[in-house]
């Protein structure tokens, strides 16, 4: 029955609303572009940077053959590395982001809705996790378990779920005591119904928003780790490109393009996720965007219709 199904939710409807949001559209377009680059990397890149036989002289300047020159340490084509690097960055960002979203929301909902001992235990774990210094521990773990992306993703997830779990928990606590939940319970609704109809849809918006923002954070973190040499040494990622450029002394030789190229890659992807996150926030929290909208409208009115509006409100003398 259509009347009962229509709601703010619905994935298609949600994407549609992001699309109609100015910032959201920018984020969405960039993200689709990046995904296409990642999927069709072998078709776009002129060389296969993983293929040792396709290497040229080290530290070549940009030319028609090598649009962004070659790497200073290995002689790989920088443009091809940039294209292939999209795969690693995007994949790590998305997989970690989604894993954090799942873990964080499940544990957050469990803590908030079940309450009692479960809540107590989970929140104490969160408290402990928050005070642990992440970076030294990450270095330690990668040294012990080996430098692979699987380990890195697991470490990110391990430390990343706590913030989301806390926010989800407090949202659930608020919703659980909402008048409309009480009203549904009076109508005979059980726990599962309340969860499915009233709590999860509201939580899902929050989770989608925070996932978009956390993806951006993770991509920066991944680049940082690779730059520090903690990433998979055989994989090509933007962070590793930066590390190579640094260790080879690109700046010393004035080969700035080897640094700018991965930098732009990181910037675009983080920018895309940030836009997306902000757009979703604006959609879920309409009061946030109200301010800027009102100001824009006011400017518009000041410019053209001010006298007209004021005149229409005048009243005859007393």
């Amino acid at each position: 029955m259509k009347l009962f199904q229509k709601s703010f939710g619905g994935i298609a409807g949600f994407i549609g609303r992001i699309w109609r949001h100015r910032q959201g559209r920018i984020g969405l377009i960039l993200l689709i572009f990046l995904s296409l680059v990642a999927i069709f990397a072998p078709l776009i890149a002129p060389y296969d940077p993983y293929d040792v036989t396709q290497r040229a002289d080290k530290g070549l300047a940009p030319s028609l053959e090598h649009p962004l020159g070659t790497s200073i340490t290995t002689g790989q084509d920088v443009f091809s590395m940039l294209v292939y690097g999209t795969r690693v960055s995007l994949l790590v960002g998305l997989i970690t982001g989604i894993a954090i979203a799942l873990l964080g929301s499940v544990l957050g909902v469990a803590a908030g809705y079940l309450g009692g001992a479960v809540d107590m235990l989970l929140m104490r774990i969160v408290d402990v996790m928050i005070v642990i210094p992440t970076l030294p521990l990450t270095i330690l773990i990668t040294n012990v378990f080996g430098k692979s992306y699987v380990v890195i993703v697991l470490v990110f997830v391990l430390f990343g779920w706590t913030g989301l779990a806390r926010t989800v928990r407090s949202l659930v606590l608020r919703l659980k005591n909402a008048d409309y939940v009480k009203s549904a319970e009076l109508a005979g609704a059980g726990r599962w119904y309340v969860m499915k109809t009233h709590i999860l849809p509201a939580v899902s918006h929050l989770v989608i928003m925070s996932t978009a923002l956390s993806c951006a954070g993770i991509m920066i973190a991944e680049a940082g780790l690779s730059f520090l040499g903690l990433g998979n040494p055989t994989a090509i990622s933007w962070g590793k490109m930066l590390a190579d450029a640094q260790s080879g002394g690109s700046m010393l030789f004035g080969q700035w393009w080897t640094i700018i190229a991965p930098g732009i890659g990181i910037f675009i992807s983080v920018f895309a996720f940030m836009r997306l996150g902000l757009a979703i926030e604006g959609i879920v929290n309409p009061c946030m965007k109200g301010g800027s909208d009102a100001k824009r409208l006011l400017k518009h009115i000041r410019g053209r219709y001010l006298d007209e509006v004021l005149e229409s409100m005048e009243d005859g003398a007393k």
């Binding site: 009347l3 009962f4 709601s7 703010f8 409309y180 009203s183 109809t197 849809p201 509201a202």
Partner: peptide, 11 residues
């Protein structure tokens, strides 16, 4: 606050 703001009147 006594009705879910995401609901239509029918729902």
């Amino acid at each position: 606050s006594s009705m879910n703001p995401r609901f239509t009147v029918a729902r």
